[in-house]
Design a protein around this nucleic acid. Structure first.
Length: 425
RNA sequence: GGAUAGGUGGCUGAGUGGUCUAAAGCAACAGUCUUGAAAACUGUCGUCUGAGCAAUCGGACCGUGAGUUCGAAUCUCACCCUAUCCGCCA
């Protein structure tokens, strides 16, 4: 959500932003509705002012009966007029709220033009793509042969995209978690295990609703969040934060649930795309400064790249084009890891900043150095998502005999184990 | 799920249906005093919003939403949340 005053004063920017994001949004319609809102509001305010001054007079015990009667008569008509105005206000406010939730945030100047992820631009590349002197297997085959995963019983239990992780498949994933949580805690992030079961407001506040309804599991009241960002951002909702000179940084772990509506044909096998997975998210609240947001955005991105380098996974980082940005995002980087079996990079991290788009909806403010209350800025980036990262490690670390080398940094978390599995060829 | 008690400003906490533009305290900020600080004293001090160059003036906000009334923080109803007890239960 953006400030209505800002929207009114910067209609061209809003139009430009919507076009760059390839989102249909009619600013003129919003301004028209807002004009109505203001004029109705003014009418109502004037009547209420009358009511208030009459009420003050009525409070005077020395008031004569006649005066009392005449005020009562007058206020009866005022009351009726006010009721009419309030009825007129309801539909106007409904459309106003609906439109306000649909206003896209304005992308940064440095965001490239484009309509889809095909137009994203590579800005960094790291690591040497391994050339195997044998034919590399995909993670499905290796992991099934090493009894690290069971898809058959997974789908028997959960249906499409179901899975069980087993043996060192389970242990390697837990090792990744230990490693990641410790790494981010050492960087000053507050570790949290956050709820996935959340109320509707949390998803409205973070900007996943109203437009993302189809991709969410839900019952009458509760939703299962697709990312820990939702609960973590809601954690401070409605609060005035005491001190935001130092940004608040969270490293939030949670199960994540996604229906993956519209991607039924993609990644139909394996652990790349599943309905239920786990993710550790970097979530940051900082002061309302564009420079601070940009600085932290680079920092969050760099944190994730550093992890990829420690794991020795070849990756590249892309800056997402306008058409690949969400409603609230100002700018986004995706980090994509090399997947040998697919001979291409696949997304493992998504790093974005929002300015005050989310915090306005969530009402997260802080007292600035000048004593003013301001909406904080928010950012987030993946730290680690499994089992996707598991598949990337398994594929990149596979050896000629079908065993899997354990990445050096994970060895301590695997109880000293350096190789997973038994020779299968 | 049942019973009871509650939800008031950054925090604690008063508030008989009519100057509530919400008492008081704490915290914060400024000043006096002091070499400096603390203490003490004095003063300032809610948020959002409309009009205005401005001083200023108007409106909204006491968990949320309806209702009663000329007028609601205060009365009624529904819902949400919190605490305690009981029930059920990993």
């Amino acid at each position: 959500m953006l400030d209505i005053k800002f929207i009114r004063e910067n209609k061209d920017l809003i139009k430009f932003g919507a076009e760059k994001k390839h989102i249909n949004f009619d600013v003129e319609e919003l301004v028209k509705i807002d004009d109505e809102r203001l004029s109705i509001r003014k009418e109502g305010d004037e009547l209420r002012a009358k009511q208030n001054s009459a009420s003050t007079k009525m409070g005077n015990p020395n008031l004569s009966q006649e005066e009392r009667q005449s005020i009562l008569e007058e206020m009866k008509t005022v009351k009726e007029d006010l009721k009419k105005i309030e009825e007129k206000e309801i539909p106007v406010m409904n459309s106003w709220h609906k439109l306000m939730l649909a206003v896209p945030n304005i992308p940064d100047m440095s965001v490239p033009e484009g309509t889809s992820d095909a137009d994203n631009m590579e800005i960094r590349k790291w690591g040497e793509i391994k050339s195997f002197d044998f034919t590399p297997l995909d993670h499905i085959e290796i992991m099934e042969k090493q009894d690290m995963v069971d898809f058959e019983r997974g789908t028997k239990t959960s249906g499409f995209r179901g899975y069980f992780l087993k043996n060192d498949g389970a242990m390697l994933e837990m090792a990744l978690w230990q490693y990641a949580m410790q790494k981010w805690q050492a960087k000053g992030f507050t570790p949290m295990l956050v709820p996935s079961l959340v109320k509707r407001e949390t998803l409205l506040g973070t900007g996943y609703l109203p437009q993302g309804e189809d991709d969410l599991y839900k019952d009458d009241q509760d939703y299962l969040a697709g990312t820990g960002e939702v609960a973590t951002m809601y954690y401070h909702s409605g609060e005035v934060l005491e001190n935001l000179n130092e940004p608040k940084k969270f490293i939030a772990w949670s199960p994540c649930f996604r229906k993956e509506a519209g991607s039924h044909g993609k990644d139909v096998k394996g652990l790349i795309r599943v309905h239920e997975f786990y993710k550790c998210e970097q979530v940051v609240l900082c002061s309302a400064s564009h420079e601070e947001s940009v600085r932290l955005h680079e920092e969050l991105t760099r944190n994730a790249e550093e992890m990829m380098e420690e794991l020795n996974i070849p990756y590249h980082t892309v800056v997402n084009c306008g058409g690949d940005l969400g409603l609230g995002q100002v700018k986004k980087y995706d980090i994509e890891a090399w997947v040998p079996s697919q001979n291409k990079y696949r997304e493992t991290h998504s790093s974005s900043y929002f300015h005050d788009f989310q915090t306005r909806r969530l009402n997260i403010r802080y007292k600035d150095v000048d004593g003013k209350l301001r909406y904080a800025h928010s950012l987030n980036n993946t730290a680690l998502a499994t089992p996707r990262m598991l598949t990337i490690i398994v594929e990149n670390y596979q050896q000629a005999d079908g065993t899997i080398k354990v990445p050096e940094v994970l060895v301590p978390f695997m109880g000293g184990k350096r190789v997973i599995g038994v020779p299968i060829r």
